[in-house]
């Protein structure tokens, strides 16, 4: 029994001869924000479309709430809110009328759901302005309003901050964070901007040319990428004393009886290790962790990096 809200099994999508998505296995956990990171054309949108049943996978399977999506769409999809690619609405209608159409077709959790959704994204309710007269940012906000109007448990948002101004980006970001932290929603978002994902996501999946290169929690990634020297030794107490007495170094953190981290990268690891050994300590591991997130991504995506 897994706790995954979304799980894909060898999800593959072929377009003609090329694979747009290849053997993708992603795992989205309940109550967390999963960030799908990849360059434009890496297969993020195709993946999300398959998760929503908008395109059928060539092979593989999508499990949502542990049930296969195929055949259970009527039960599963109303519990999901989604925003895929560019915001799309009827240009000759106002925002409220547009939402009204989708509310009529799907149903809503309360009678003032349309107003609530528009309030949340700061668009006016029952405004006279037509969708065709909206700016890109406002269109994007309306699309977000549509995604959250029925208070879904799971949100699938494809590049939700596209077209927003910096203030709007910050607003949407804190709003998404809030949905997850306060309301316990599960959220899958995609972006091609590393900094955006690292600010928002709890778990990160890196996708490049349709292949999932890495799936890891941000905490682990950050831990790995912050700069320090990690030692695994037989006695941290003596190690601490030696560091203070011999190297006059106080910037360290003792994790438990065997693990200690040193935050001064100017010291020579070999010298420290040899002094530790001289003093009768057993050193089973010593390494420098010095990749920044960017460097890390550059390395695993094969050098080109992500914006």
């Amino acid at each position: 029994m897994s706790d995954y809200i979304i799980e894909t099994k060898n999800l593959t999508k072929m377009y003609g001869m090329g694979k747009s998505v290849a053997d993708l296995n992603i795992h989205v956990q309940k109550g967390r924000i999963y960030g799908l990171l990849g360059r434009n054309g890496a297969g993020k949108t195709t993946t999300m479309k398959m998760l929503l049943g908008l395109t059928q996978p060539t092979t593989g399977e999508v499990l949502i709430w542990e049930k296969p999506l195929r055949g259970n769409e009527r039960k599963i999809l109303p519990r999901i809110g989604s925003l895929i690619e560019a915001p799309s609405f009827y240009p000759n209608l106002t925002a409220t009328e547009n939402l009204h159409i989708f509310a009529t077709l799907r149903g809503v959790p309360n009678p003032h759901a349309i107003k609530d959704a528009l309030d949340l994204v700061r668009l006016p309710y029952k405004d006279k302005k037509l969708f065709s007269q909206y700016s890109l940012g406002m269109k994007q906000r309306l699309a977000i309003a549509l995604a959250i109007m029925h208070d879904p448990e799971l949100l699938i948002l494809d590049e939700p901050i596209n077209g927003l101004d910096p203030i709007g980006i910050a607003e949407v970001r804190s709003f998404i964070r809030q949905l997850c932290d306060e309301k316990g929603k599960t959220i899958l978002i995609s972006s091609h901007i590393l900094s955006e994902i690292s600010l928002l996501a709890d778990d990160i999946g890196i996708i490049d040319k349709g292949i999932l290169l890495e799936e890891e929690s941000l905490a682990k990634l950050e831990q790995r990428s912050s700069k320090y020297i990690h030692f695994t030794i037989s006695d941290t107490a003596q190690a601490a004393r030696i560091l203070e007495q011999i190297f006059d170094e106080k910037q360290f953190l003792i994790q438990d009886d065997y693990n200690i981290r040193l935050y001064n990268l100017n010291l020579s690891v070999t010298k420290i290790v040899s002094v530790f050994i001289e003093n009768g300590l057993e050193v089973s591991e010593a390494h420098t962790c010095g990749d920044s997130l960017e460097e890390h991504f550059k390395r695993i995506t094969g050098g080109e990096g992500i914006a």
Partner: peptide, 18 residues
């Protein structure tokens, strides 16, 4: 607790669901 009952506004069960 995140599950919601969706209902169309004019349906008989709507007030109950809301």
């Amino acid at each position: 607790g995140n599950r919601r009952i969706l209902a169309k506004t004019h349906e008989i069960v709507a007030p109950l669901a809301y």
